[in-house]
Design a protein around this nucleic acid. Structure first.
Length: 523
DNA sequence: AAAAAAC
């Protein structure tokens, strides 16, 4: 088997890698490092958690090993979509470059220009940035990209989602075309394809299987939920969430809870705290220092529950997150994969539980169709005792979430069926909808990923034996529920920790990533 | 319908 030491990386890099305790590169690392060291462009199609970050930082550090940066002319550039991701890349860089003299600067918004300017003036070997802040620096004329030898674009598909592609193009245009480009994306949407055709030259193409959904380390489940009434639903949903957390018992040592809206992130976080959970929110409206601090506490295990918007869905690497709860079904199915990918990292076990309301059913169907598997239905821990639970939920409700408007649009009676029925309807409906996957519904992107969904499970038509599957799931659920009584998760629970052999140099899994930002901030 | 990112 290929080792890092077989890869022509510099001794200094190898030494730093060895100290992280890893010796075997992941497929994306092997695939990217070899051509990158030969000076070739690289197009990596891979999710986070596959070891992407090391796949570009290791060869970069090796390539930059000789030579020195001139003032205001960085020798390399890494672009990441969010500030947290950029900070994470910077932390990786620090760890792997510790035996080199390479300098770096992290250019992200929400922080002062002054320190960044100072570093740039001194000259940096590696610039790690979010596009907005980088362009800002460029427009102020303090930064010149004409000496960039290596440029990395990370999470390009997310950049696309966030409307950064014009910015990326602009930045590309300011770098010399002789540069080497390492480009990473989870998908190849047409727009991404266009960019790579324009700015990469004869790239080595590396594609690795989707990380999260095929990741059997992650145990998934969904609870179908309907409130006893429209106005009560939000509080009851939070109650359900609490019960789901409690039901996981000691197996849940820490968790990320994803909500679709920033407002709900705040509400859920407050509510959890009110009920004695150790939770804190993170989303884009909170100022950067707050975000950084919260993330740091979560990494340091001072914070048990991180309530997050999708700012934390992709790429963020916190080792050993045991649970992901989706308070809402993500409206982009793709995000589901990213969210649950925050757990079960680097060979560890993980659990991902989602709450699906009737309004989410369409999105849920999209999720199942994307991951191409049926997510096991879990019985609600509130069960038939819903009224009692609802009553208990009344002491909830932090002030901020009192419904402001009293628009009580009564829904048709059909909606008042018990949740179980709704769940079955959802399942049935979703099965009906399956075949339409072939329908020529507008020639828009989104589907671009279909051809390269190279998972080994073939195109088994799911409607082939739906009833059978449903029964199986039902049985599984019951079993699972029984096990819950003793606070366990079944037999494999015993091995839970023994089994957790950590494998592969996943994105940032090495121990240093668990260090606080303060600790890493040296240099 | 919402999230992210520049001031």
């Amino acid at each position: 088997m290929t080792k890092f030491s077989d890869l022509n990386l510099s001794d200094k890099v190898l030494k730093a890698v060895a100290e992280t305790g890893y010796d075997t590169p992941t497929p994306i690392q092997v695939g990217a490092i070899v051509p990158a060291l030969e000076g070739r462009d690289v197009l990596g199609i891979a999710q986070t958690g596959t070891g992407k970050t090391a796949a570009f930082t290791l060869p970069m550090i090796t390539l930059l090993g000789r030579g020195r940066a001139r003032a205001r002319m960085p020798r390399s550039l890494v672009l990441a979509p969010t500030r947290e991701l950029a900070a994470q890349v910077a932390a990786n860089f620090d760890a792997y470059a510790k035996y080199t003299k390479l300098s770096k600067a992290l250019l992200i918004g929400g922080t002062s220009f002054k320190d960044q300017d100072k570093l740039i003036d001194k000259g940096v070997d590696v610039l790690i940035a979010t596009p907005g802040r980088l362009l800002d620096h460029l427009e102020r004329g303090k930064l010149i990209l004409t000496d960039v030898k290596v440029m990395v674009v990370d999470e390009a598909d997310r950049m696309l989602d966030m409307g950064f592609i014009p910015d990326i193009e602009e930045i590309f245009k300011r770098t010399p075309f002789t540069r080497q480009t390492l480009f990473f994306s989870a998908t190849m949407a047409p727009e991404i394809e266009r960019i790579t055709n324009t700015f990469l030259s004869n790239p080595a193409k590396i594609e690795v299987a989707r990380a999260a959904t095929t990741n059997t380390n992650i145990k998934q489940g969904v609870v179908m939920f309907k409130g006893s009434s429209k106005p009560k639903e939000p509080a009851e949903k939070r109650d359900l969430l609490r019960q789901l957390i409690v039901a996981e018992g000691d197996a849940c040592t820490n968790a990320i809870i994803f909500c679709n809206r920033k407002s709900d992130v705040d509400i859920v976080s407050k509510s959890l705290n009110k009920h004695g959970f150790n939770a804190a929110p993170i989303h884009g409206d909170l100022d950067q220092s707050h975000r950084t601090r919260t993330l740091e506490q979560f990494r340091d295990n001072e914070l048990k529950i991180l309530v997050a918007s999708d700012v934390a869905a992709r790429g963020l690497d916190i080792p050993a997150v045991t649970h992901v709860f989706n308070f809402d079904v993500p409206s982009h199915a793709e995000d589901y994969v990213h969210r649950i990918g925050r757990t079960g990292r680097a060979g560890r076990k993980g659990t991902a539980i989602m709450i699906c309301t009737s309004r989410d059913e369409k999105n849920f169907a999209d999720v199942e169709s994307l991951v191409n598997e049926q997510i096991p239905r879990l019985d609600s821990p509130m069960g038939k005792a819903a009224p009692a639970a609802a009553a208990a939920a009344t002491d909830d409700a932090p002030k901020t979430e009192r419904p402001k408007r009293t628009r009580t649009r009564r829904k048709p009676a059909a909606d008042d069926k018990p949740a179980a029925d709704t769940a079955q309807q959802a399942a049935a409906q979703q099965q009906q909808e399956q075949p339409k996957d072939e329908a020529p519904r507008e020639a828009k992107p989104r589907r671009e990923r279909a051809p390269r969904q190279q998972t080994p499970r073939e195109d088994t038509p799911r409607e082939a034996a739906p009833q059978q599957q449903r029964n199986d799931n039902q049985r599984d659920n019951n079993q699972r529920d029984n096990n819950r009584g003793r606070g366990g998760r079944g037999n494999n629970n015993n091995n839970r920790h023994n089994d957790n052999k950590v494998v592969g140099l996943g994105d940032d899994t090495p121990a240093f990533i668990a260090l606080s930002f303060a600790d890493r901030a040296k240099v």
